[in-house]
Simulated assay, not measured.
Amino acid sequence: MHRFQVASDVMRDGLGVELIDSDGNVLAEIFRCDADNTLKFFSFTEELPFPLVEKLVLIARKNLGNFEDGSQLPVPILIDG
């Protein structure tokens, strides 16, 4: 069973949503860095089921909010076809 949690990181100046396995290991993270207004994905394992990555992205978009200075998160890039 996997779970998701929102975690603040003072050292990296931001907020992240983590994907955690049943043993408590962080498998992946989407991190909102308020120092440089970036949104980054980190994977800490070689293989992740795509539906879990999709869910992580959706949860991050819903829960991370705006950057600390009020700027909005980057708009998703949609590719036709």
Rank of each mutant, 00 (worst) to 15 (best):
R3W: 11
R3H: 04
F4N: 10
F4M: 11
Q5T: 10
Q5H: 12
Q5F: 10
A7D: 05
S8H: 00
D9I: 08
D9N: 02
V10I: 12
D13G: 15
G14Q: 04
L15F: 09
L15H: 11
L15S: 15
G16E: 13
G16V: 06
G16C: 10
L19D: 00
I20G: 00
D21W: 04
D21I: 08
S22H: 15
N25K: 15
V26E: 07
L27G: 01
L27Q: 14
L27T: 02
E29S: 04
I30Y: 14
F31I: 05
F31L: 10
F31H: 01
F31N: 08
C33E: 11
D34A: 02
A35I: 08
D36F: 15
D36Y: 12
D36H: 07
N37R: 15
L39V: 02
L39C: 11
F41A: 14
F42R: 04
S43T: 05
S43K: 14
S43I: 12
F44E: 02
F44A: 05
T45S: 05
T45I: 10
E46H: 15
E47V: 03
L48K: 10
L48Y: 02
P49E: 14
P49M: 08
F50A: 09
L52W: 01
E54D: 12
K55T: 05
V57R: 07
L58D: 07
I59W: 00
I59G: 00
A60D: 00
R61L: 04
K62I: 00
K62E: 07
N63L: 04
N63Q: 10
L64Q: 04
L64R: 03
G65R: 13
N66D: 06
N66T: 09
N66P: 07
N66K: 15
F67A: 15
D69Q: 09
G70I: 11
G70V: 06
Q72E: 09
Q72G: 08
Q72R: 08
P74K: 11
P74Y: 15
P74N: 06
V75S: 09
P76T: 13
I77W: 03
L78I: 09
I79M: 05
I79P: 13
D80I: 09
G81F: 09
